[in-house]
């Protein structure tokens, strides 16, 4: 499998050279062809800037970016064979849906009849047949999102970039769109690069993902890698709701004296165990209850599966866990 997008020590600094704001700082990255790649991170972590570096709306201040092996450092956005689904969709309000979708073909000089036929095909692909004559303002958020997708796909880009495309949708619609996007990507066999700050979205949709923190990549891997074996404290904390254990607590739990992560769902409550604490908070999640224990000032969370007894707040409980679930991270 060849590389669709490569970042070679790419930086994007803003502001004066003496005190730069390092939006992206020395990023190395390979996105393989046909994969669904997610860039995950909190806001301001550099993930969106990386996406804009691929589309060409930002120029790197250092390093090189290759798309299918070609250096695109001097290629403006309109000559890059990549297309973007924008966060706010950026549909043109003065055009109807069909003309919006056909826009990329129109600026290439394709005739009206042909491009409208193509646009209608794309609208059928995103299940919006018959909506061509409407204005974007007459559509719901989910429908606009599909129009934006159709408009980006009509040019048959080699890489599709999606900038938090589901952020504005409500939960139910978002989950439906996640499944649809994933199915569409499989069907088209296209490389999707997806930016999100939602860890569940990234884990459930991506083939592989990069976790960004402060302009750098904290970890790249498959969702499983990242979830089960976080490389740093930041990743463990940001992806999911893992317990990040300081060295002394790891040792108290029977491990070596280094930072470790422990998934709440790998723990259970027991009468006795290596660590006891006071039940401080309970959060009912439907599939189970998340119990937070206060163990001598350190908080540690455990999951009680649905149907099992939940301790009352203020009572004492011990934590037991599968030793293999304790993932050591050294001092990172």
């Amino acid at each position: 499998m060849s590389a669709a997008v490569e970042f070679l020590n790419v930086s994007r600094h803003f502001g004066p050279a003496s005190a730069p704001v390092k939006a992206v700082d020395g990023v190395d990255l390979t996105i393989s062809e046909g994969s669904f790649f997610a860039m995950l991170g909190p806001s301001g972590s550099g993930k969106t800037t990386c996406l804009r570096l691929i589309s060409g709306f930002e120029k790197p201040t250092g390093g090189a970016i290759r798309i299918f092996g070609e250096d695109v450092s001097n290629t403006p956005p309109h000559l890059r064979n990549v297309n973007t689904v924008f966060q706010d969709y950026a549909l043109f309000p003065h055009m109807n849906v069909r003309d919006n979708v056909a826009y990329g073909l129109m600026v290439k000089g394709m005739g009206r009849a042909r491009r409208h036929a193509r646009a209608d095909e794309m609208l059928a692909l995103v299940k919006l047949d018959g909506y061509g004559d409407r204005r974007p303002a007459q559509l719901s958020g989910g429908q606009r999102q599909r129009v934006a997708l159709a408009r980006a796909l009509v040019n048959e880009p080699r890489v599709l970039l999606l900038d938090e495309p589901l952020g504005a949708l409500d939960l139910k619609l978002r989950e439906a769109m996640q499944d649809e996007l994933k199915a569409l990507q499989k069907r088209l066999g296209l490389t999707f690069v997806f930016v999100t700050h939602d860890q569940h979205e990234a884990l459930s949709m991506a083939d592989s993902l990069a976790v960004f923190n402060e302009g750098r990549i904290a970890q790249i891997g498959t969702p499983q890698d990242i979830y089960d074996r976080p490389a740093t404290r930041f990743v463990a904390d940001f992806v999911g709701s893992s317990n990040v254990l300081p060295p002394d607590l790891t040792r108290a739990l029977g491990g070596p004296a280094e930072w470790a992560s422990l998934r709440p769902e790998a723990t259970r409550l027991a009468a006795t165990g290596p660590l006891t604490g006071t039940v401080k908070a309970l959060r009912y999640l439907g599939s189970g209850t998340r119990v937070v224990l206060d163990a001598n000032g350190t908080e540690i969370a455990a999951m009680v599966p649905a149907g099992q007894p939940v301790p009352a707040e203020g009572t004492r409980a011990a934590i037991a866990f599968d030793p293999q679930a304790l993932h050591l991270m050294g001092d990172r």
């Binding site: 309109h78 706010d88 950026a90 043109f92 990329g104 408009r151 040019n155």
Partner: peptide
């Protein structure tokens, strides 16, 4: 919005086409 101009460029429009359309 700026994203509208970016969308136009992203879809392959030159500056003149973006201006006109």
């Amino acid at each position: 919005p700026n994203s509208m101009l970016e969308a136009s460029a992203d879809l392959g429009a030159t500056r003149a086409q973006t201006f006109r359309t």
